[in-house]
Simulated scan of single mutants.
Amino acid sequence: MFNEKGFISIDCGYVEQDYMDPNTMITYTSDAKYIDTGESVRNLNSALSSQYQSLRRFTQGKRNCYNVTSLASNRKYLIRASFVHGNYDSSFQIPKFDLYLGVDLWYSVSFQSFSDQVWAEIISLIKSDHVVVCLVNTGHGTPFINVLELRPLPSFMYTIVNGSWSLTTLHRIDAGSLSTVTLRYGSDPYDRFWVPYTFKDWIALNTSSTIIINQNNQFQPPLAVMQTAAQSSNRSTGINISWEPPTWAPDALFYFNFYFALTQVVANSTRVLTIFLNGERWGEPLNLLSPTMHWSGTLNPERRSQKYEVDIRAYTFSDLPPIINAFEIYMANAPSSSATEAQD
C-alpha cells in the first residue's frame, strides 16, 4: 500500500466524522470547511459507495465555489470531481451544469441516466496554497457534487503541465482488463482512474509477471494496468481507437499517450506494431521484444482534424497481431493565471 500523503479527499454534503473508505483505505472528510453555500443531501441508495451516499446541491445562486486550502504551492495536482445523481430529489430530471477551475471552464457535466457515474479530472500546476472549484448553473437543472479529490503529483510527471498548459482527461483506459471495477489508488499511487475496457472484437491478454516500467518515465502507468492487454482478433486486423472533442470545447487541442508491453512471450515469433494516425504512419515501428513498457504519444498538444482515428497494426514482418495495454487522451488547456493563483 502506498502513502496517501498530501491527498485531499472531500465527501461533499457529508456532515459526520472523517472515515476511511474500506476499498481504497483513503480517508474522506466533510466539505463543511471548504464551502458555506449549498445544501447537504443524503442519497439513500445502498448500492452506491460511501462517497456517493451524500451530496451537496446548489439551488441558490448562479455560481457556488469550493475554496480548497492547505495545498503545496507551485505543485502539480490531479483534481477530480465526481457525480452520481441517482434521482436523489425524485425529480426525474437530469441536470446539466458547468465546472470551473478558478475562472476557467474545466468541464461541462451531463448525464445519460440517473445511475451514471460522471467524473471530471484535470492536471494543473497550482501556484498558490489554495484553489477554487466552482459549479455554475447554466439553466438546465440544479448543480450538485458528490466528491472532490486533489492528488499531488511529482514534478517529473506530465512535464507538459506547467504555467502554460493543463490537461483535462477525456479517456484513461485499461485495455484488455476483464474487471468491472475502475482501477485506482492501491494499484496506482497517484489515484488516477483507469477504466477497464475491451471491445467485442478484442482478445483479452494478461500476465502475473512483472512488466518493467522505467522509473524515470514521466507517465508511470501502474503495473496492474500494464499486466493486461487487448489483442486484435488476427494479424490482418488492426486495433482502432477514435475520439472527437466534446461539444463544449470544439477547438480543443489533444495530448495523448499509448502504452504497450508483452504480456505473453511466444517462442520464435515477433510482435512489431505500426501506428497510423488519421491514415498516415505515425512514428517508427515498435518492436516488443520483452515485458518492458513502450510508449508512443504526443510531445506537445496538437490538433490535426475534427476527429482523431488511431489504427494500430501489425508491421509487415510481424508474426503476431497488434496489442495495446493502456492509453490516455487529454484535452490541453491554456489556463489563465487567475485560475490557479490566489487573487481570485
Score class of each variant (00 low, 15 high):
Cys65Leu: 13
Gly102His: 09
Thr198Glu: 03
Asn45Val: 10
Pro301Ser: 06
Glu4Met: 04
Leu183Lys: 10
Gly238Tyr: 06
Gly141Leu: 08
Asn300Gly: 05
Ile239Gln: 06
Val41Trp: 10
Ser209His: 09
Thr228Ala: 09
Ile79Ser: 05
Asn67Arg: 15
Ala229Met: 11
Gln343Leu: 09
Gly186Ile: 00
His171Tyr: 09
Tyr77Val: 14
Val118Gly: 13
Glu328Tyr: 03
Gln231Arg: 15
Val103Leu: 15
Phe276Asp: 00
Thr59Pro: 12
Gln93His: 15
Asn287Ser: 11
Ala332Asp: 06
Ala267His: 05
Asp251Val: 11
Gly139Cys: 09
Arg57Leu: 14
Ser187Trp: 14
Asn214Gly: 00
Leu135Pro: 03
Ile160Gln: 07
Asp98Gln: 13
Trp119Gly: 13
Asp319His: 04
Gly102Ile: 11
Arg63Trp: 12
Arg63Val: 11
Phe199Trp: 13
Thr210Lys: 02
Cys134His: 08
Leu262Thr: 04
Glu4His: 05
Thr138Trp: 04
Val161Ser: 00
Val118Ser: 12
Ser236Thr: 06
Glu4Leu: 01
Glu244Phe: 09
Pro152Asn: 03
Met1Glu: 07
Trp165Arg: 03
Ile122Glu: 05
Ile324Glu: 02
Glu121Val: 13
Asn23Ala: 10
Asn43Gly: 08
Gly13Trp: 10
Val310Asp: 06
Ser115Asn: 15
Asp89Val: 08
Pro95Ile: 05
Gln215Thr: 09
Val15Leu: 15
Tyr315Cys: 11
Gln218Tyr: 10
Arg42Pro: 05
Leu273Gly: 01
Phe256Lys: 11
Trp106Ala: 04
Phe2Pro: 08
Ser46His: 13
Gly279Arg: 04
Gln215His: 12
Leu262His: 12
Ser70Asn: 14
Leu135Ala: 05
Phe7Lys: 08
Tyr158His: 06
Tyr28Thr: 06
Pro222Phe: 08
Ala249Ile: 04
Thr292Cys: 07
Gly141Thr: 01
Lys200Asn: 13
Cys134Val: 08
Ala204Met: 09
Pro291Glu: 07
Asn333Lys: 14
Leu153Asp: 05
Ser73Ile: 09
Gln218Val: 06
Val68Lys: 10
Leu167Trp: 02
Lys5Met: 11
Arg75Trp: 11
Leu253Thr: 03
Gln264Trp: 12
Ile94Gln: 14
Ser110Ala: 14
Pro301Ile: 03
Arg57Thr: 12
Thr263Glu: 09
Gly176Arg: 13
Ser40Arg: 10
Asn300Lys: 13
Asn268Thr: 08
Arg184Thr: 05
Leu135Gln: 08
Pro95Ser: 02
Thr29Asp: 07
Ser164Trp: 14
Ser124Cys: 15
Leu223Cys: 00
Thr59His: 12
Gln215Ser: 11
Val131Ala: 12
Asp18Gln: 03
Val147Pro: 00
Arg56Asp: 07
Phe193Leu: 14
Ser338Lys: 14
Ile160Ala: 02
Pro322Gln: 01
Trp202Pro: 09
Leu286His: 05
Ala72Thr: 15
Trp202Met: 06
Leu289Gly: 12
Ile212Gln: 06
Phe156Tyr: 03
Asn300Tyr: 11
Thr210Val: 12
Lys127His: 12
Arg151Leu: 03
Glu16Leu: 11
Tyr259Asp: 07
Asp116His: 14
Val41Glu: 01
Val103Arg: 14
Ser177Gln: 05
Glu280Asp: 02
Val225Tyr: 00
Leu125Glu: 13
Thr180Met: 07
Trp243Gln: 08
Asp31Leu: 01
Leu101Asn: 07
Ser155Glu: 10
Ile324Arg: 02
Gly283Asn: 00
